[in-house]
Amino acid sequence: MAFGADELRVLRRALAAALGPAPLQDQDVQDCLRLTASLDEAVREADRLRAFLLADLTRYREALPGSLGGYLGLLREALAAGYDPGADDLAALRALRGNPAAAALLSRCQGLAERSVRARLARVTQATASASRAPRTRLLALPGGRAAGDGPRPAPPAPEERPVPKPSEVFPPRRRPVPPPPPEERAAG
């Protein structure tokens, strides 16, 4: 994303105002709001372009091997835009690895996919570790829970210990089906 000279002046004034205690003039506030709207529009446009590029990449991938040149070009463009190759991309490139350009792109995509998976695992591991290290909070009594004159409450009764059922008790044995009567008895009955 590139800024024009006017946008950079507005951005510089906004940063100066954010760092300094001086109040902003009305014109500066309006300029900042216009710059914010322009930035939001640029982000939306970038999202639309990315969605279009990924949809185009999917169409080219589904038309392989006839669309090899177009697919490889679009994949390079998507990778340059920050796209993480998916399992479909890796499978398509593996099928096309006889082509030197596809083989080179396959090794690049495998490295990117591996880095992406490692980063996701690191985030999950970090979140799990931070959750397990978090101190436990004490439970506090809520107001109105017990009146002051109630005194101590008796402990609840201990639960009955039941024996663990045997598998044959939980899953009774199957009964063998009764064989059908011979044909002579069926005709007579």
Rank of each mutant, 00 (worst) to 15 (best):
M1K: 09
M1R: 08
M1Y: 12
A5F: 08
A5L: 12
D6N: 06
E7C: 01
R9I: 09
R12E: 07
R12G: 03
R13H: 06
L15K: 01
A17G: 01
A18M: 07
A18W: 07
G20N: 04
G20H: 02
P21M: 04
A22H: 10
P23V: 00
D26T: 03
D26F: 00
Q27D: 15
V29F: 02
C32T: 14
R34D: 06
L35M: 02
L35C: 00
T36K: 04
L39V: 09
D40E: 08
D40Y: 00
D40I: 06
A46M: 04
D47M: 13
D47A: 15
L49D: 08
L49A: 09
A51H: 10
L53N: 15
D56E: 15
L57M: 04
L57H: 03
R59C: 05
P65S: 11
G69K: 11
G69I: 11
G70S: 13
Y71V: 07
L72V: 14
L72K: 10
L75P: 12
L75S: 09
L75K: 08
L75M: 12
L79T: 06
A81K: 09
A81S: 13
G82S: 10
G82R: 08
G82A: 10
D84V: 02
A87R: 04
L90P: 10
L93K: 01
L93W: 06
R97Q: 01
R97D: 02
N99K: 02
N99V: 00
P100N: 02
P100F: 03
A101C: 02
A101Y: 11
A102I: 03
L105H: 13
L106V: 00
S107W: 04
Q110Y: 03
Q110E: 12
L112A: 02
L112N: 02
A113D: 12
A113R: 06
R115S: 11
S116V: 08
V117A: 14
V117Q: 09
R118Y: 10
R118H: 10
A119T: 13
R120P: 07
R120K: 14
T125Q: 13
Q126F: 04
T128D: 04
A131K: 04
R133E: 15
A134M: 13
P135M: 02
R136F: 07
R136E: 13
L140F: 05
L142P: 12
G145P: 00
G145E: 14
A147P: 15
D150P: 00
P154L: 14
P154A: 14
P154T: 10
P156W: 09
P156T: 09
A158D: 10
A158Q: 09
E160M: 07
E160W: 04
R162Y: 08
R162F: 02
P163G: 11
V164D: 15
V170K: 01
F171P: 01
F171A: 08
F171W: 11
R174H: 09
R175F: 11
R175N: 11
R176T: 15
P179R: 12
P181M: 15
P181V: 07
E184S: 09
E185N: 05
E185M: 05
R186I: 06
A188G: 05
A188L: 06
A188E: 01
